[in-house]
């Protein structure tokens, strides 16, 4: 059993980045936790692909942002924001699978 990500992170959120992409931020409580997760390469394409059941080609980027001790994951939206059949116009409730990550 690893450490639940919710113990290390202060913020885990999702939001639109334009109508075609969803972007998720994991902002850590302290630099030690951030550096550890970064070093172990915990947040990688394979993990995101599994958590969201999407092919790796739909993951636009995973970026470490040191000034905010944050990791940012951007994926292609399965349906464009607000189009017929789309379920979250602002994209603000697509973060939950990330809460299950263990380090």
């Amino acid at each position: 059993m690893g450490i639940p990500i919710t113990e290390l992170a202060e913020v885990i959120r999702s939001k639109n980045s334009g109508p075609y992409e969803l972007t998720m931020d994991i902002i850590f409580k302290d630099f030690d936790s951030y550096e550890m997760v970064k070093e172990k390469n915990v947040i990688n394409k394979e993990l995101i692909s599994r958590l969201y059941q999407i092919p790796e080609k739909d993951i636009c980027s995973i970026i470490n942002f040191d000034p905010a001790k944050a990791i940012k994951i951007t994926i292609k939206r399965p349906i464009v924001a607000g189009a017929i059949g789309e379920s979250d116009v602002y994209g603000a409730q697509q973060h939950a699978p990330l809460l299950s990550i263990e380090v």
């Binding site: 972007t23 931020d25 902002i27 970026i63 905010a68 944050a70 951007t74």
Partner: peptide
């Protein structure tokens, strides 16, 4: 610093 840097991430794909 955290609130401002974190905001730099908000709603965008690449914070740099």
């Amino acid at each position: 610093v955290t609130s401002i840097a974190a905001h730099t991430l908000y709603e965008k794909s690449n914070p740099y």
